[in-house]
């Protein structure tokens, strides 16, 4: 019963379509936010009070890894890096 798909009864096509439409709107906006973030400096708040910043390049579609450049860490700079989304609490950028 935790799956959002299964909550829409098989007889209720309208409910399923509303849910699909909602998922499309939410996902499209999120993907657009990722494209908008490309090339911007992003500040990452990670677990254990670790704070870093980097230029965002791309994400995998499962939102598990962010590929970044010029990563500024407390211990130094890395020209290219991958961040695990499971290490990140939040990220912030300006438009």
């Amino acid at each position: 019963s935790s799956s959002s798909i299964s909550t829409a009864g098989s007889g209720n096509r309208a409910d399923l379509e509303r849910e699909q439409q909602g998922r499309v709107e939410l996902r499209e906006r999120y993907l657009r936010s990722l494209f908008a973030m490309a090339g911007h400096t992003v500040h990452f708040t990670m677990y254990e009070r670790v704070n870093v910043s980097a230029s965002f390049d791309a994400s995998d579609i499962d939102i598990l890894n962010f590929q970044v450049s010029n990563l500024q860490t407390p211990l130094g700079v890395h020209r290219e890096a991958l961040l695990r989304c499971s290490d990140i609490i939040s990220y912030t950028f300006e438009l």
Binding site: R23, L26, Y30, S33, I61
Partner: peptide, 11 residues
Amino acid sequence: LTIDPVSANIV
């Protein structure tokens, strides 16, 4: 602004 339905990330 949105919530990603894949990751549940809140924007």
